[in-house]
């Protein structure tokens, strides 16, 4: 120990001017500029959702008027219910499939094509969403024509599919972090495979599963492109409704709904972050 302490201060001294990016000229300005461009629109949106005026440029008075109107609006209410229904179904199923996929890619003997399986599971993240949307639309039209079956199930199925990779990532990360000896210890203590899963793997995996589910929920709630193409009549989700309203000009009512949606997303992402931190 003693002989390694001597050269350290010198090395640290040499490194310091390089490492301290904050001292570079213009660093602060650029950083603040980026933060401003990112968040100023959102702040404006939130502010004007509380404006007691139809205008989105003139501030008159603070009020909850637009929130009240939004809650009273039949279209918004219906769209919200559709959104929540689709997101709930998509979350449950995509999380189950993602958990199974994560177990299959981490808790089995390495198999041929494992990397390929991993790539296929994650592929939806890399394919442009419009491509997925168009192909899903065509595919579903074909099925509808062949079977004559219609309904919201198609939208739920589409959401389930594109949510899988989002749910898969945190679950797989958690499984990779988890020490295999924990499961071996359970097997050593007379637990057959199913009991090992139920009593040890699943409880330890829970934070990952919850994180995956929340991510899937937010992604489903948010989706526009695929929903726009796949959704049938009467299957308008909240983002699609907002989009439709905006075509007729921005109203503070939309600001209010957007603010609520933002609040929900922030709540979920925060929870996701906290859960992720607790496992460390």
């Amino acid at each position: 120990m003693a002989d390694t302490t001597a050269p350290l201060p010198a090395a640290a001294k040499r490194r310091r001017p390089m490492a301290d990016l904050k001292k570079q000229p213009g660093f602060n300005q650029i950083a603040w500029g980026c933060i401003f461009i990112l968040y100023a629109p959102i702040i404006v949106l939130i502010a004007f959702s509380f404006n007691d005026n139809r205008s989105v440029v003139l501030w008159t008075e603070f009020s909850f008027r637009w929130y009240v109107e939004a809650f009273g609006n039949e279209g918004i209410r219906k769209a919200t219910i559709v959104s929540l229904e689709v997101a709930a179904v998509a979350t449950v199923f995509s999380t189950i499939f993602a958990t199974m996929a994560a177990l299959a890619t981490t808790r089995t003997q390495p198999f041929k094509g494992q990397t390929l399986a991993y790539a296929i599971i994650n592929q939806p993240l890399m394919i442009p969403e419009i491509v997925t949307a168009v192909s899903t639309l065509a595919f579903f039209s074909l099925i509808k024509q062949l079977t004559g079956v219609n309904g919201i199930g198609y939208l739920m199925l589409a959401h389930t599919v594109f949510c899988i990779p989002f749910a898969y990532m945190p679950i797989r990360a958690r499984l990779e972090d988890m020490n295999l000896t924990m499961e071996q210890a359970a097997a050593d203590l007379y637990a057959p495979p199913l009991q090992v899963f139920r009593r040890v793997t699943l409880p330890l995996l829970m934070p990952g599963i919850v994180a995956g589910a929340m991510l899937a929920f937010v992604v489903s709630l948010d989706d526009v492109i695929i929903t726009l193409l796949v959704a049938g009549p009467g299957e308008t989700t909240l983002p699609i409704y907002i989009l439709g309203q905006i075509r007729r000009g921005i109203t503070p009512e939309i600001n209010a709904v957007s603010t609520l949606l933002l609040g929900l997303s922030i709540a979920f992402v925060t929870l996701f972050f906290l859960l992720g931190r607790r496992r460390k």
Partner: peptide, 12 residues
Amino acid sequence: NTVFQNYALFPH
């Protein structure tokens, strides 16, 4: 039964 090097106690 085994006593593991890193103990492998169930944290939950």
